[in-house]
Design a protein around this nucleic acid. Structure first.
Length: 567
RNA sequence: CGGGGCGUAGCGCAGCCCGGUUAGCGCGCAUCGUUCGGGACGAUGAGGCCGAGAGUUCAAAUCUCUCCGCCCCGACCA
């Protein structure tokens, strides 16, 4: 492609809206342009990269025997009502009506459509296993799009679905995807973690995420360097630090206007570990009090899992009604109404705790957990905290931020049950199809690759993702000799199927060099006056900055062999 | 949805507090000339409903209100 004729709007200035490096570089190098919040156009360079990623995904999906299909984005709402996800997705799903007033939705994912296809096709256990996938535009009305294409409202997802007749079949399909995903991310040059994850809205038994470590990531990972334990904070466990106190009797203490653990602990001169945090939540229109040690945070994902549904903190007036006191002074002892109580495991053996008395400006001290509180269950419900030990091997855990690239789920029969997608087993008995679901964020691979590979000059593409392999720079195009040599080389490379971006613009050398480094194509070839006498060009490797001087006649061979050595 | 910031030429910004000729600057763009190895120089020029609407005023980019959009933090999030 000739630069002078191409739509590659590079810019020197950092766009004011972009905060993270990948977002800034994607705009500056002319890969994408924003149309509306979380909605992007892909320009020629960006689209070329996207197609490289998609090609790798297709190859690896095909390798595990998956079949590519294409499902509609525009869905009748009824199919989403069949599984109850019309409601579950809430405002996150884009909805619209057709001219007859029929309600439709723009699909945020495709389990329902797959299930519909499955129930139309699968009759017998002999029809399975099946793996179907697509690379499709997804729509999600994110509450807060951010970080450029990393959290967008319209984005590409590779979504795959497996259909099996028994659990071991599902295990195999799941494992195949795990292998395919490893190959995909490795081929894209990404360093990733595989972590245990929560299945959230999707439902199902187990799931794992493929995560790229990044300070700009929205997820938090808990990693153990010693035994390899790796988990999303949402489901991570750890050994809690011990906090020992002697048994005491229950006493009221006046704590005027001291509400937070912080304030009361300072006021009473007692450590936070001696406190008990009481949080009132609402789930399925039922109140539940959650108890944690004062130094720990509630993990809402875990609570949600336990309550099997949506949860929210109770409003201040609800707290007053249930506890008879304001937030900051509530506790499990002496509640006005009897409600469900869930306690974190770390509380079970605790003595002499401090907690709210359900009375204005008053706390209780000397609370003996087993004696004074009768929770419905003891269960791990807290966030893993800095400095805690691994529950598998007792080594200290590491906490890092990460970007979610892919997620694989064992769905089980959640969708096939509600949508009546069944098959006849060997005994002629009808069973629900056992499903798995597997997603990859296509743009996120691109953003991740840039986050991981860039310098202060611009992007540094891996060969496999690069929009072009070679960036040919003709300095001073009005020098006939330079122009002739460059144009001949361009033709030569293109004829040999080496994708080349040919910078034939009439702009100053510095301009071209800066653009080349910004765009980040792996090999730069510079034809200039300096090399004319000894008939040599410069061949520079963007990643290392290494430069070699190569005779014009050998350029193509040298480029080819460098390309072979590049990852 | 809560908190904060921003919206002035294609991009980056100043002007706004304290209202007053014709709204500026840098980059980019066009033409001509000189340049030509790390975002060249000179000359000339084009380009703005100052996000939208309403109000206050003799007078609004500037003050007030409403709405819209974009970004950040939080909440939320296959």
């Amino acid at each position: 492609m000739r630069f002078s004729e191409a739509y590659i709007p590079t810019q020197k200035e950092i766009p004011s809206d972009a905060v993270i490096p990948s977002h800034q570089l994607m705009i500056r190098s002319g890969l994408v342009r924003l149309l509306a919040s979380g909605v992007y156009s892909y320009l020629p360079l960006g689209w070329r990269v996207m197609q490289k990623v998609m090609a790798i995904i297709r190859e690896e999906m095909d390798r595990i025997g998956a079949q590519e299909i294409f499902m509609p984005v525009l869905n009748p709402i009824e199919i989403w009502d069949e599984t109850g996800r019309n409601e579950a997705f809430g405002d996150e799903m884009f909805r619209l009506s057709d001219r007859k007033g029929r309600k439709m939705a723009l699909a945020p994912t495709h389990e329902e459509i797959i299930c519909d296809l499955a129930r139309k096709f699968v009759r017998s256990y002999k029809d399975m296993p099946q793996i179907w996938y697509q690379i499709q535009t997804k729509f999600r009305d994110e509450p807060r799009p951010r970080s450029g294409v990393i959290r967008a409202r319209q984005f590409f997802m590779k979504d795959a679905y497996s259909l099996d007749s028994d659990e071991s079949g599902l295990d195999q399909s799941y494992q195949k995807h795990a292998e395919a995903y490893k190959r995909i991310f490795t081929r894209c040059g990404l360093k990733y973690h595989i972590v245990g994850a929560s299945s959230g809205l999707m439902g199902g038994s187990s799931s794992q995420e493929f995560m790229l470590e990044s300070e700009f990531g929205e997820d938090t990972l808990i990693l153990c360097d010693s035994c390899g334990y790796a988990s999303n904070l949402e489901v991570a466990t750890s050994v809690h630090n011990k906090a020992e106190f002697k048994e005491e009797s229950l006493k009221e203490v006046h704590t005027p206007d001291k509400r937070s653990i912080e304030e009361v602990s300072e006021f009473l001169k007692l450590p936070k570990t001696q406190f008990m945090k009481s949080l009132l939540y609402v789930s399925n229109k039922e109140f539940v009090m959650v108890l944690l040690r004062g130094d720990y945070e509630l993990n809402e994902a875990k609570l949600q899992q336990i309550m099997h549904g949506e949860i929210r903190p109770a409003h201040p007036d609800e707290v007053k009604e249930v506890c008879g006191a304001e937030i900051g002074f509530i506790g499990p002892v002496g509640l006005k109404t009897s409600i469900k109580i869930i306690a974190d495991l770390a509380l079970r053996e605790q003595h002499n705790l401090v907690t709210g008395a359900n009375k204005a400006d008053t706390h209780l001290t000397g609370l003996e957990f087993k004696r004074d509180v009768t929770p419905e269950q003891y269960i791990d419900i807290r966030n893993v905290a800095e400095g805690e030990k691994c529950s598998k091997c007792d080594h200290e855990l590491k906490i890092v931020q990460a970007i979610e690239l892919g997620h694989i789920f064992k769905l089980g029969t959640k969708y096939s049950n509600s949508m009546k997608a069944t098959f006849l087993d060997k005994n002629g008995k009808a069973n629900p199809i056992i499903m798995g679901s597997y997603g990859i964020g296509v743009e996120r691979i691109i953003a991740a690759a840039i986050e991981q590979n860039h310098d202060d000059k611009g992007i540094i593409w891996e060969k496999v993702l690069a929009p072009f392999k070679v960036h040919l720079i003709a300095l001073k195009v009005n020098n006939q000799q330079i122009s002739d040599i460059s144009t001949r080389l361009y033709k030569d490379l293109t004829d040999s199927d080496i994708d080349t971006l040919y910078d034939d613009r009439e702009v100053s050398p510095g301009f071209k060099f800066k653009d080349a480094d910004l765009i980040g194509i792996p090999i730069q070839v510079v034809i200039g006056e300096r090399g004319l006498n000894d008939k040599k060009a410069e061949v520079k490797i963007r990643k290392t900055g290494e430069v070699q001087h190569v005779e014009f006649n050998n350029l193509k061979d040298t480029i080819t062999s460098i390309l072979n050595t590049l990852a």
